[in-house]
Structure formats: C-alpha cells, structure tokens
Amino acid sequence: MGRSKTTGNNGTVASSPSPSRSPVAEELPIGPLSIVVPEAEREQVKVNTASLSELKNACDDAIKRYLSRPELFKQNYIHTDVRLGLGWSSVIVAGFTALYGYKVEFEQSKPVIWIGLILYCALSTIQWLYAFFIEKETIFQGKRKTFSRRIVTERISIGSRTVPVKSSIPPAYELQISYVRSSSNGKSLLAKGKTRGSREYNSFFDEQGTMDQQRLEQFVGELVEQTMEGKNS
C-alpha cells in the first residue's frame, strides 16, 4: 500500500496511507452482466402464452444457453444422464421381457417375466424418486475454474418454478440460485450465497409470445451476481 506525505504545523512530514482497491473486488470472477451477447447469436423464441409449461420451458432453455457460454459456466448434465440411464434401462428390461415371453412358452417364461416386471417397476420407481427428492426443480448446474494467484472453483445451481396466478397478479417465473466459490480443492471457502427472485412472465413475453431474451438475461444476471457476492435473499 502506497503512502502520501503531508506537512504538519510544526514542519514535520507525516505519511498517510493512500487508497487502494479491495482485494476481494479484485478476486471476484467475471459475472454474467459483463458478457455481451450479440443479437446475431440469438434465435427468436416464440411460444403459446396460454401455456404456462411452454413459458417456463422457454425461460429454462434460455437460461441454460446464457449461463453455459464459454466465458461463464460449464454445464453439468448429471441429472439428465441419471434420468436417461434409468429410463433406457427400464425400456430395455421391458423389451427383453416382452420378447422372451413371446419366444418362450407361457408357463416356462413366467419366472423370467416376473423378474422383468419387478425390475421394470423398481427402475421406474427409482427414476421418480430421483426426480422428486434429488433433482427437484433444478434446471442448471454449472462449474467454472479460474486462476487468480490460485485456482478458484465456482459451482452454481439454479432451480425454477411457476408461481401461479393470485387474484389479479399474473403468473410469475421464480428462480432459486445457490453458489459456492472455493479454492484448495474446496478446503478454503471464499464465498457462498443463496438468492431467490421472481418476475411476471409478461415481463419477458409480448402479446404474440415472442421472448425478450435480453430482459430475461438481465434478470438472471442480476440474481447470479448478487449470489456471487455472497448475498442471501
């Protein structure tokens, strides 16, 4: 830290510390609002405004595209992979069981058919339990590693849901964001935050159902950067 010299009434020279930038601010990684997305890279998104599921899915997909840009986070597909693995496994079991029952006489095939039926029910149940208790409302999980005098790892998780109509208030899109920034392979916690925010769907879509992607990105970017600063709301 530098020092500036001042002369007192008695002629002596005193030194006082000069202002310097906060080390925390210097280490804060780049946030979404610092990324400028060219309009040419955006494809028009148009949905049926009468369908809440279409509105939510369109917003979810736009957020994934925005936050998974090379400058931001690398998306983690663990939830999708698990659900696809369980789903395909149940389909394979069902197909094999049906084929075996078709090729082999009924009485002889009953033990295998029962095993196949039990496996199919078990896999379908596990898939449902995973989606309900583990994946929940998660739409995006991302990770980023940066180097600023040390290796810093960031992890972000975003969940979304539709807030239903309440009297005269239109349906809204709500996000829940959690964020952790650490170093030394997670041993040193640098920042941690959780943020929640919502905005009415008509803030992002016009009457024809065309999405204002820039406005949605601004909304998401502000929430993410608040969370990156360690704020909780």
Rank of each mutant, 00 (worst) to 15 (best):
I169Y: 08
F219H: 08
R161K: 15
E207F: 10
L52D: 08
E154D: 11
F133K: 08
L84C: 04
G8M: 06
S4G: 10
R144L: 01
I139P: 00
A58Y: 01
S198K: 14
S182K: 06
K192F: 13
S157L: 12
I118E: 06
I177V: 15
S109F: 05
I151Y: 11
P170L: 10
V47Q: 04
R144M: 03
K46D: 00
Q108C: 00
P29I: 07
V13H: 07
S68V: 05
N57H: 12
E54L: 05
A62T: 05
D61W: 04
L223P: 01
E43V: 10
Q208R: 15
S183I: 00
L223Q: 12
S89L: 09
L189Y: 00
Y201W: 06
E105F: 03
S90P: 02
P38C: 10
P32N: 04
V112H: 05
P171C: 05
E135L: 02
L28F: 10
I35G: 00
G101F: 03
L123K: 00
Q226S: 12
H79T: 01
T138H: 01
S167Q: 13
A58V: 06
S178L: 01
S160T: 14
V112N: 02
I113Y: 00
R199V: 09
T146K: 05
S18I: 13
G221L: 10
I92C: 12
K145L: 07
I63S: 03
S34H: 12
S53R: 11
K103V: 11
G221E: 03
G186C: 06
F204E: 03
E222V: 09
K5T: 07
E200H: 13
G209R: 10
G159P: 04
R3C: 05
Y100K: 02
V104N: 04
L99N: 05
A172Q: 10
R69C: 01
L72F: 02
Q208N: 15
V36P: 01
L67V: 06
E39V: 14
K5A: 13
I134C: 05
E135I: 00
T138Q: 00
K64G: 03
N10E: 08
Y77E: 13
S178V: 12
P32R: 02
